[in-house]
Write a protein that binds this DNA or RNA. Structure first.
Length: 588
RNA sequence: GGUCCCAUAGCUCAGCUGGAUAGAGCAACAGAUUUCUAAUCUGUAGGUCAUAGGUUCGAAUCCUAUUGGGAUCACCA
């Protein structure tokens, strides 16, 4: 629409002898109750024309209509200049943009970005919160890729610490040597089960100690099992063979389980970082900070940074005994990532409960004079809440990722069977379809919401398959493919269609917005923008589909044109859904 | 208490850098299939955009305050 802005600038210059910046022209899509496709708001221009908004609109409209060939008409309503572009303009759009191979393809922009997401703990299976994280991270990475970035998907695995020792300890004590092989249980679930067992035993011991007259706080510290876990952590850090060996074994179980869940979710990674390798990093950065005077040392030897001038607090970056805290590690890991890849931007997909941490982390790196620190971004997303409130592992109020995936597939199966579809599919094809649809519903449900908003998930109220949902969009795609398959091969050459019906024009208009949607989504780090866009495409197509027959079109030219328009719609839907990590089926 | 985030229809959400009578879906009601997939389409009903000020020709959108909800302010990660 740049040509319109230009023409409007010219109009104002010619009519009112005023030079305008392109940014001063306010263009917007015309509301659908009015005639036209693009609207110029005339209010800001009245100070140059010194005339009423209506008169200004009429003058500019008349000028544009004469000046710009593709403008077929205009009307002015309450100071809004609605411009109609000719049907040939829109038809031309379809052929010269939408149907070309490089439509919505961006050239490499020469920038490298890392997206770190997932970052699980290896002591329990993934739950719904992780699912949101994984889907968001994957989708943002895909969207950036589509925008021309070189993308590195990274996963920082939290594979060490007291919580892993808890699982290990409980397994040693109660496990009787059972393994995923011996029980048939998914590895991450098995390990998670022992984590819960640890907690049960721990609570029991606390209660016992309280009966002996200890306070709750004392009891928590003195419980033998927690002391044992702490000892185990020390032995791990000392490199004790037995502990390390068990740790490796159990981690492998977990990775095997995670791998399956990742596969089911359709997410992947280019680079893994393990906290067992990175937890000692960052101490040289602490030295650097001390040297530069960014950090200071307290009498006890602990190292701090004073962020009170920035409206924040004092923050510990190294303990008095010289050991790391979370911040130390993250400083070191940030440096490590940059040393590895020299990326221009680095996105951390982490829940909003860590907003403060990342604010501080980025600020510290800036204060240390790291040039790359300005490319750091915390993609902060809201919690997934249940009707009962927050998910708590220990209270058993988590929605397990694997269970959820299975339930979605099951529901997809039930819905499909109730509709009496795909009876002639093989068992394998059916399974794949149910997975596609179930995951489509789940992924769309989670991604259509603005990442920063909290999300309410009611396990008792199944995710919808109708209306503003993934399956609706998948269905639209399948429907198009079905029609196309009956008419193939479709001619690729341009038809000389002369005029459009409103449904056709509206559909083309929506399709043209795809590239700018991809850009907006990347800038905003928001898959929701793509999700809401592709819904608009599906709706526009369905309306067109319902109003106009494709295969039984009035004449051959119209039929070819509609087939091409349908093919273009299917392609955009497919591509947009892929940005969300959602597959679209050929049939459903 | 300090800081940050959120508040739009009964429910779940859109609403781009301020623009026309605030839009979808679900749920409710009424319709559409001799015709390309009805997981669809059309219509009805449903709103003091949390409240109060301010900036502006114009505010759901920007600013301030208030209310409500959430997060965080650990020598946990």
């Amino acid at each position: 629409m740049d040509f319109l802005t230009e023409a409007a600038v010219k109009a104002v210059k010619t009519l009112y002898q005023t030079d305008l910046n392109a940014a001063d022209v306010s263009l917007q899509p015309t509301r659908k109750e009015f005639e036209g496709q693009v609207t110029i708001v005339t209010f800001p221009l009245t100070k140059f024309s010194r005339k009423s908004p209506e008169q200004t609109g009429n003058e500019i409209g008349a000028f544009l209509e004469k000046e710009v060939e593709v403008i077929s008409g205009f009307n002015v309503i309450k100071g809004f200049l609605n411009i109609s572009l000719s049907d040939s303009y829109w038809i031309n759009k379809l052929y010269t943009e939408i149907l070309t191979d490089n439509f919505a393809e961006f050239k490499p922009n020469g920038k490298k970005v890392m997206v770190e997401y997932s970052s699980p703990n290896t002591n329990k299976p993934l739950h719904l919160g992780h699912v949101r994280n994984n889907l968001l991270g994957y989708s943002v990475a895909e969207i950036l890729k589509a925008n021309g970035y070189e993308v590195i998907k990274a996963n920082l695995v939290n594979d060490r610490g007291i919580h892993i020792c808890k699982s290990m300890l409980a397994w040693l004590r109660f496990g009787n040597g059972e393994t995923p092989e011996s029980t048939g249980e998914k590895g991450d679930h098995l390990v998670g089960r022992y984590y819960v067992l640890f907690d049960k035993e721990y609570k029991k011991q606390i209660e016992a100690l309280k009966l002996e007259g200890h306070t709750e706080e004392e009891a928590k510290k003195r419980a033998p099992i927690i002391k044992e876990a702490q000892e185990m952590l020390l032995r791990w850090e000392a490199g004790d063979q037995d502990v390390i060996s068990l740790w490796k074994t159990m981690n492998l179980w977990v990775y095997d389980g995670f791998g399956k869940t990742y596969k089911a979710l359709g997410v992947d990674f280019d680079q893994f970082y393990y906290e067992s390798n990175t937890y000692l990093l960052g101490k040289d950065i602490v030295d650097e900070g001390l040297q530069k005077g960014v950090f200071f040392k307290k009498e006890d030897g602990s190292v701090w940074i004073d962020l009170t001038p920035d409206g924040l607090d004092e923050k510990l970056v190294l303990r008095a005994d010289g050991t790391s805290v979370y911040m130390t590690q993250d400083l070191g890991t940030a440096q490590l990532k940059y040393d590895d890849f020299q990326m221009d931007e680095s996105i951390y997909v982490v829940g909003n409960e860590q907003d403060y941490h990342f604010k501080v982390l980025f600020l510290i790196l800036q204060k240390l004079g790291k040039q790359w620190a300005k490319g750091l971004y915390h993609l902060s997303y809201g919690m997934v809440d249940l009707p009962s409130g927050k998910m708590k592992s220990r209270e058993g109020t988590v929605v397990d990722a694997d269970d959820l995936i299975n339930e979605m597939e099951q529901t997809a199966k039930e819905v499909t069977e109730a509709l009496g579809k795909v009876v002639e599919y093989s068992e394998e094809e059916k399974q794949h379809l149910y997975h596609t649809i179930g995951m489509g519903a789940l992924k769309y449900f989670l991604l259509k919401v603005d990442p920063k908003k909290r999300l309410l998930f009611d396990p008792n109220e199944s995710v919808d398959f109708q209306g503003h949902t993934g399956p609706f969009i998948q269905y639209t795609h399948a429907r198009i493919r079905s029609v196309l398959s009956k008419a193939e091969p479709i001619e690729s050459k341009k038809t000389n269609l002369q005029s459009l019906f409103p449904e056709e024009r509206d559909l083309i208009l929506v399709l043209t917005q795809f590239p700018e949607t991809i850009s907006l989504a990347a800038e905003g780090h928001s898959p929701a923008i793509v999700a809401n866009y592709v819904y608009e495409v599906a709706k526009a197509f369905n309306k067109f589909y319902h109003e106009k027959s494709i295969l039984q079109a009035e004449d051959e030219i119209t039929k070819q044109f509609r087939l091409q328009l349908s093919a273009a719609s299917a392609r955009v839907i497919n591509k947009a859904m892929r940005l969300l990590g959602i597959e679209v089926p050929e049939r459903m």
